[in-house]
Design a protein around this nucleic acid. Structure first.
Length: 865
RNA sequence: GUGGGUAUGGCGGAAUGGUAGACGCGCUGGUUUUAGGUACCAGUGCCGCAAGGCGUGGGGGUUCAAGUCCCUUUACCCACACCA
């Protein structure tokens, strides 16, 4: 074999890329008779450059897409851009680029890069969420949500940055300060638009059980996020009215109504209307409320946060025991926006409550006694008892178990007219208003006389004005000289446009539907088309979207269903969450980040900065990030090794669901394999049977063995691809090529078998390395595109193993291996095993007590001692 | 704190309860080459000259048989987080 034969990926890849594009090989045929397969990866934010993380994500989807197409499906494989969002505005602030220009130039660059990567996307279905034709339809959907009561407006608190004059997302608040301005963030109330996702809470939980092909982890995360808890809402009655508080009761929510007789305090949120009323005449309480506001919401703060309370002096009646009154406290741990903003504390059976009670010397009365313990013997120190048991000290609940007591307590609340069973959710309605420029304008006009009036459909789209300024902080739409001034569609009076735009998660909640009908200018999408293509058969993306994006998309699909747009509930049938791509980080002596190519290892194993030979520090292996300078641009790698090598490498080292480490040595080794494959096939071409040669009547043992190897490889490789075990599939491929290398091709039957092997090999790796496969496919004499060549079929007869090598164990330890015909019965297997010289000599000393034979698997001989 | 996950050679990782370490990287020796690189051949879990022994984070258990199942424990990772 000629060791100097070298594959020229640059030339070959460019050639096939051009041909595929010219011949529109990846164009979706919407009228195809084939069964449909919708293969989708989460579309990217157009940040500027593609990195290897993207490449891995899209390669996974590409392999599936190509494999499914070869397997006879009509594949919809689109790509687009999640193109609205804050980074564009930051670019405008930082370097004066217009968000629109910046975004579209990024899209152009990234599209070119993606096309270089050879993905089989149908670019005719491309979508960018900042295209007017896209957000026009999104505005239509918004109006439909409004009609159906899914969209509504209400006042809500936001994080307000007083220096930048803008609202911040929670992620943009760092240690209570704006991430950009550093200003202390204030909470402000603004009227904002919401989508009623909570109405779908139960349906979204129930739907999870139908998503059997989703990772369990994601389903659990969503269920926890929705956070359904069943309990009871009831009132504590205030014996005397509180001036300024327009109620005579405190409403609480509890999941443990059974423990009502253990109640030793009522805790209300510092933001509770009662707290605010009382604080007006109580400076000390006002100070306490102010202090509670300060506490950060960051993870560390909460973990160390002390339970703090303030006794109001008020006492409420116990609902079932007139002899008891319960003190009302303000407590810093009570959230105003969950339940009713008030709760009753039962210290004996709630850990947080017992901490509070011990601190403020409130009574701790056990009312649930563990099974088998005498009530008199049961005491609690600093740990609450939250398990099951029998009710005690609880009048009419005594003797019941927890479940029965809950029900009876609720019945009693109902009978007294104090409350009723209620289900609460952690999930809040989805606030979609953003006080930003670069987003989809909310199609609403505010009129002083008519209120919030929807923009009539025939006046859509509400387009973003281009002539905006970013010289000052705040929303440019707000201070645009003309844009927001308009007339009311109802009364024709002077009115103002809504200047808020929609959160970008709205854009990504229906793009997968738009892909089915990307160019429709009449409506968001054609119903029949969506009903045909949806649900997405395989969705691939990062685990970081496990909750928000995937939950919003599930909600949107249902909301659109209820507006008559489509007939499905769940958008994504299979979900695959891939791992991150990590890379080593390096810093110089001053702690500045260095690119990996800026450092080298000296002979002592120490890292040096190449430029000036000063010491460098090797840092952690972390997710690729521009700021840490540990990104790898696939385009650079492609220059050297070709894109097929990159595609192969990102799939071969780790299972796709796990994190993957990018290494120079790794891509180098992969490149060697690409060449080896090329040589193996290219060099052998003159020696194998001609294309389409008749199958020989019989095969020699050697040729038959090759055919068996080929068919076993098809079987295991295909199985691994189906299971997303790409790394294992590639390992099988390497094994196969290793074995092919040593075979002599000197007889007609072997020439035929070898051609079969070569064609199979090329077809198997075609989804992973499409350019190389296409090239060799032509060399093998074909003129059609390999993506349309039917996936190799396994000949079951050939794939069956005819002999097996199994272990012979003595007391569970392997002492010998035997090879015997596959399918040998237990008796034969045992005979061969005990006759093995080594086994026989052991048995001569210690006779077998028992012999377990699992045909084709194992023999285990149990001997004494 | 709650929920979920992971732990296998120097490294990435394979193993429907049935020969642990496939495949690759790295390393060692050799062949080709002016040299380097490439390519090819052989070896490579640990201890041991060998016979053999030991080995899947630790401890226990179920089983003829455990990386795999159960209990327990440690470390790390991810998500959520005062949710009543």
């Amino acid at each position: 074999m000629n060791s100097t034969t070298r594959y020229n990926p640059k030339e070959t890849e460019a050639k096939w890329r051009q041909t595929w594009s010219d011949e529109q090989v990846f164009k979706t045929k919407f009228d195809s008779k084939r069964p449909k397969y919708y293969s989708l990866e989460m579309f990217p934010y157009p940040s500027g450059r593609l990195h290897v993380g993207h490449a891995r994500n899209y390669t996974i989807g590409d392999v599936i897409g190509r494999y499914k197409r070869a397997s006879g499906y009509e594949v919809l494989r689109p790509m687009g851009w999640d193109a609205f969002g804050l980074p564009a505005e930051n670019a405008a602030l930082d370097r004066g680029a217009h968000p629109k220009d910046w975004t579209y130039s990024n899209i152009k660059e990234m599209r070119e890069q993606m096309q270089l990567l050879g993905f089989c996307y149908d670019w005719d279905a491309e979508v960018a969420t900042c295209d007017v034709i896209y957000y026009h339809q999104q505005q239509k959907i918004f109006l439909d949500f409004l009609k159906h009561g899914i969209a509504y407006q209400k006042e809500a608190e936001v994080n307000w940055d007083p220096i930048d004059n803008c609202v911040l997302a929670n992620e943009e608040v760092v240690d209570g300060r704006g991430w950009r301005s550093g200003a202390l963030v204030e909470r402000r109330k603004l009227t904002q638009w919401f989508f009623g996702i909570t109405k779908y809470a139960d349906e979204l939980i129930d739907g999870l059980s139908t998503l059997t092909e989703w990772p369990e982890k994601v389903r659990i995360m969503q269920e926890n996020w929705i956070g359904k808890s069943q309990g009871c809402r009831f009132n504590f009655i205030l014996p005397v009215p509180v001036a300024g508080y327009d109620s005579d009761k405190i409403e609480v929510f509890t999941t443990r109504p059974d423990t009502i007789f253990g109640a030793s305090f009522v805790a209300i949120s510092p933001q509770h209307p009662l707290s605010l009323t009382l604080a007006k005449d109580n400076p000390a309480m006002a100070v306490f409320i102010e202090e509670c506001k300060k506490g950060g919401t960051a993870a560390a703060d909460i973990e160390t946060a002390e339970k703090k309370g303030f006794d109001t002096g008020l006492r409420v009646a116990h609902p079932f025991d007139d002899t008891k009154t319960i003190p009302v406290w303000l407590a810093n741990f009570v959230l105003m926006d969950y339940g009713t903003g008030a709760l009753f504390g039962c210290p004996a059976h709630d850990q947080r409550d017992i901490e509070f009670a011990r601190k403020y010397n409130l009574p701790v009365l056990p009312v649930v006694i563990p099974h088998g313990v005498k009530p008199a013997d049961f005491t609690l120190e600093n740990d609450a008892y939250t398990g099951d048991g029998i009710l005690a000290n609880s009048e009419f609940l005594n003797g019941l178990d927890v479940i029965a007591a809950k029900q009876k307590a609720i019945d009693a609340f109902v009978a007294k007219g104090l409350g009723q069973a209620e289900t609460n959710y952690r999930l809040r309605d989805w606030g979609v208003s953003r006080q930003r420029y670069w987003g989809c304008p909310i199609p609403i006009i505010h009129c002083d006389t008519c209120g919030a009036v929807p923009v009539p459909e025939n006046q859509l789209p509400v387009e973003l004005p281009y002539d905006v300024t970013f010289d000052r902080p705040g929303n440019p739409l707000d201070r645009h000289p003309t844009w927001k001034h308009t007339t009311c569609p109802k009364c024709s009076g002077k009115a103002q446009r809504e200047t808020d735009t929609m959160a970008t998660f709205v854009d990504s909640s229906w793009y997968f539907l738009r892909f089915c009908d990307a160019k429709n200018t009449e409506k968001p999408f054609d119903k029949d088309r969506v009903n045909h293509w949806m649900p997405v058969d395989q969705y691939v993306g990062g685990i970081e979207h496990a909750v928000l994006h995937l939950l919003y998309a599930r909600f949107f699909t249902r909301a659109l269903r209820d507006c008559g747009y489509l007939n499905i509930d769940e958008p994504f049938r299979n979900l695959f969450t891939q791992g991150m791509v990590n890379h080593h980080t390096y810093r110089d002596q001053d702690g500045k980040w260095l690119y990996p190519y800026e450092v080298e290892k000296n002979s002592n194993g120490d890292w040096l900065k190449i430029a000036d030979q000063t010491p460098a520090i090797a840092g952690d292996l972390i997710k690729m990030s521009k700021s840490k300078k540990n990104t790898v641009d696939p385009s650079e790698i492609m220059e050297t090794y070709g894109i097929d090598a990159v595609r192969l490498f990102v799939l071969s080292d780790s299972p796709p669901e796990k994190d993957f480490e990018w290494t120079a040595a790794g891509i180098d080794g992969t490149w060697r394999f690409v060449n080896k494959l090329y040589r193996l096939i290219f060099d052998v071409l003159p020696h194998i049977a001609a294309k389409g040669s008749a199958q020989p009547a019989s095969f020699s043992d050697a040729a038959l063995n090759l055919r068996k190897l080929t068919h076993r490889t098809i079987a295991t490789f295909t199985d691994s691809i189906e299971k997303f075990h790409f790394n294992a599939a590639i390992a099988r491929l390497r094994e196969y090529t290793n074995e092919l290398g040593g075979i002599k091709i000197d007889t007609p039957d072997m020439q035929w078998a070898y051609r079969e092997a070569m064609e199979t090999l090329v077809q198997l790796f075609a989804p992973i390395m499409p350019h190389l496969a296409e090239e060799l496919w032509r060399d093998l004499g074909y003129s059609d595109f390999i993506i349309d060549a039917a996936w190799p079929q396994v000949d079951a007869e050939l794939a069956r193993k005819d002999s097996v090598t199994i272990g012979v164990q003595v007391n569970g330890k392997v002492r010998a291996t035997i090879t015997l015909p596959a399918g040998s019965d237990a008796k034969t297997t045992e005979q061969i095993a005990v006759n093995d010289p080594k086994i026989a000599s052991i048995l001569a000393q210690t006779p077998a007590k028992k012999i377990i034979v699992v045909p084709d698997r194992i023999v285990n001989i149990v001997v004494a001692g």
